[in-house]
Design a protein around this nucleic acid. Structure first.
Length: 219
DNA sequence: CTTTGGATCGTCT
DNA sequence: GACGATCCAAAGG
């Protein structure tokens, strides 16, 4: 057990306006932000190092592509809320909702670096694993932080549920790595995955796409 | 190191 | 009835 302590200890909760934008803009801005989950006596903190953008009706890979359903309803609500879904009969994945109410969009939280509450995370994972494997995948992240379908709809901006995203002054990478999204069947060519280049906590090493042409694929 | 297949059930067609 | 915005263990190079 050797978790680092995040630099200064202070952090600001992100405001509604941060989320009320195009997921393509929110996603890279979330890199290096802090995900905070209050779990009873434990305060779990992790630095986001990998994300993917999903653009609702304009994105064939998005759960919201074909409109609102009971499952994805949160994505159609106000920005700054948590969208948690259940998949493969056993896994949960967490997103932050973007864009104004009525327009579905989200950023999937794919990986993070654990900063605090590592023992609680390890307990939740119920496996003997190192720090780097605690949060290096969207379903692993949810398992370690205790995020289930019950957390769907939580308002990250108020922080009233003990779950929020904070800024401790560490800037997003000026030149993040960009690549295609993982595990989808449609929209596989869209370079809408971002990660902190070289960070050992990412879910897995995939090919980077050169940034010059990724900007042209906003449809 | 990479590849492959099984697990497992809520959701939508 | 089919299929996941995944993970893991086992097998192969």
């Amino acid at each position: 057990m050797h978790g680092e302590i995040y630099a200064s200890g202070w952090m600001n909760r992100l405001a509604r306006g941060f989320y009320e934008r195009d997921p393509l803009d929110v996603a890279p801005d979330l890199l290096n932000k802090l995900l905070v989950v209050s779990a009873g006596p434990d305060r779990l903190v992790a630095r986001i190092v990998e994300v993917e953008a999903y653009r609702g009706s304009e994105d064939p890979a998005s759960h919201a592509y074909r409109g609102s359903t009971p499952r994805n309803a949160t994505m159609f609500g106000p920005p700054g809320h948590l969208y948690v879904y259940f998949t493969y009969g056993m896994h949960h994945c967490a997103n932050v909702v973007c864009w104004p109410p009525g327009r579905a969009g989200a950023v999937l939280l794919r990986a993070a670096a654990p900063l605090s509450g590592l023992e609680a995370m390890r307990r939740a994972r119920a496996r003997e694993i190192g720090d780097r494997e605690l949060l290096n995948g969207p379903a692993k992240l949810c398992k370690a932080l205790g995020l289930t379908r019950q957390a769907d709809g939580i308002d990250l901006v108020s922080g009233a549920s003990g779950v929020w995203v904070g800024d401790d002054g560490v800037e997003p990478p000026a030149d993040p790595a960009v690549g295609v999204r993982v595990g989808i069947r449609n929209g596989t060519e869209l370079p809408w995955r971002w990660w902190v280049r070289g960070d050992v906590h990412v879910s897995r090493p995939l090919r980077e796409i050169h940034s010059s042409w990724s900007a042209s694929l906003r449809a």
